Computed example of a mutant assay.
Amino acid sequence: MLIQLTMRQVDGLPIPGSPVDGIRIMALLPRTWEKDLTQASGDIVIRVCPDEPTTCARVREQVTEILTNPEVDRWELVSCHTLPHKPLPDELSAVPPCRGTNEEDP
C-alpha cells in the first residue's frame, strides 16, 4: 500500500525550498517504512509504504502523533490518502510501445 502524506505549517505560512523539516519528519516515521520526500509549494509531501498491512486511518494516527514532537510540532497533517496501484514491470510489457508522431517524416 502506497500512502501520500501532505503536511502544512500550522500557521499556514510556507517555507519555500527547505527540506530540513521534511527530513526530520521522515526520520521520526517508522524506520521499516519505505519513504520518499517531496516538498512542493511550501507543503511537505511524503510517500510511504508501510512494511505491514495497515489502513490509511492507522497511518494518519501514527503521523499525527509524530507531529506532536517539539522539533516538528509546527506542522500538521492536512491529507493522508492511498495512491492508486502502480503497474508492475511485467504488466507494463503488455502495453504496446508509444509511437512517435514523426514516424513517416523522411
Results as ranks from 00 to 15, higher is better:
residue 100 G to E: 15
residue 93 S to T: 14
residue 34 E to T: 13
residue 68 T to K: 15
residue 54 T to L: 03
residue 101 T to S: 14
residue 7 M to H: 02
residue 31 R to L: 11
residue 24 R to A: 08
residue 52 E to Q: 14
residue 51 D to F: 12
residue 21 D to M: 09
residue 6 T to A: 08
residue 77 L to C: 03
residue 51 D to A: 15
residue 98 C to G: 13
residue 33 W to A: 02
residue 35 K to W: 00
residue 48 V to K: 01
residue 59 V to D: 03
residue 43 D to G: 00
residue 1 M to K: 07
residue 77 L to I: 02
residue 13 L to F: 10
residue 24 R to W: 06
residue 103 E to C: 14
residue 49 C to A: 15
residue 59 V to Q: 01
residue 105 D to G: 05
residue 89 P to S: 03
residue 5 L to R: 05
residue 41 S to M: 14
residue 69 N to C: 07
residue 41 S to W: 09
residue 103 E to T: 13
residue 71 E to T: 15
residue 73 D to M: 08
residue 31 R to F: 08
residue 16 P to I: 09
residue 91 E to R: 10
residue 97 P to F: 07
residue 78 V to G: 03
residue 19 P to T: 10
residue 63 V to Y: 01
residue 101 T to Q: 12
residue 51 D to P: 01
residue 41 S to G: 11
residue 11 D to P: 02
residue 35 K to T: 09
residue 9 Q to L: 11
residue 13 L to M: 10
residue 31 R to H: 13
residue 67 L to E: 05
residue 72 V to I: 06
residue 66 I to H: 03
residue 4 Q to K: 12
residue 47 R to G: 04
residue 93 S to Y: 09
residue 89 P to G: 04
residue 22 G to L: 03
residue 55 T to R: 05
residue 103 E to R: 14
residue 34 E to C: 09
residue 69 N to I: 06
residue 23 I to G: 06
residue 75 W to I: 01
residue 8 R to A: 13
residue 36 D to Y: 13
residue 101 T to C: 12
residue 11 D to F: 00
residue 29 L to G: 03
residue 55 T to N: 04
residue 62 Q to H: 15
residue 53 P to E: 12
residue 81 H to E: 12
residue 50 P to W: 02
residue 12 G to S: 03
residue 18 S to A: 09
residue 56 C to R: 12
residue 75 W to T: 01
residue 50 P to E: 06
residue 84 P to A: 07
residue 64 T to A: 10
residue 91 E to G: 08
residue 92 L to N: 04
residue 102 N to K: 12
residue 89 P to I: 05
residue 92 L to A: 08
residue 72 V to S: 01
residue 89 P to Q: 05
residue 70 P to N: 11
residue 46 I to L: 07
residue 24 R to S: 11
residue 96 P to V: 04
residue 61 E to C: 12
residue 69 N to A: 15
residue 70 P to I: 09
residue 94 A to Q: 14
residue 73 D to E: 11
residue 73 D to R: 15
residue 90 D to L: 11
residue 22 G to F: 00
residue 45 V to E: 13
residue 83 L to A: 07
residue 59 V to T: 02
residue 106 P to I: 10
residue 12 G to F: 04
residue 23 I to V: 11
residue 13 L to C: 08
residue 50 P to G: 04
residue 104 E to V: 12
residue 53 P to C: 06
residue 48 V to Q: 00
residue 65 E to V: 05
residue 97 P to W: 00
residue 58 R to T: 12
residue 28 L to R: 10
residue 38 T to H: 13
residue 4 Q to C: 07
residue 62 Q to F: 00
residue 51 D to H: 15
residue 93 S to E: 13
residue 44 I to D: 03
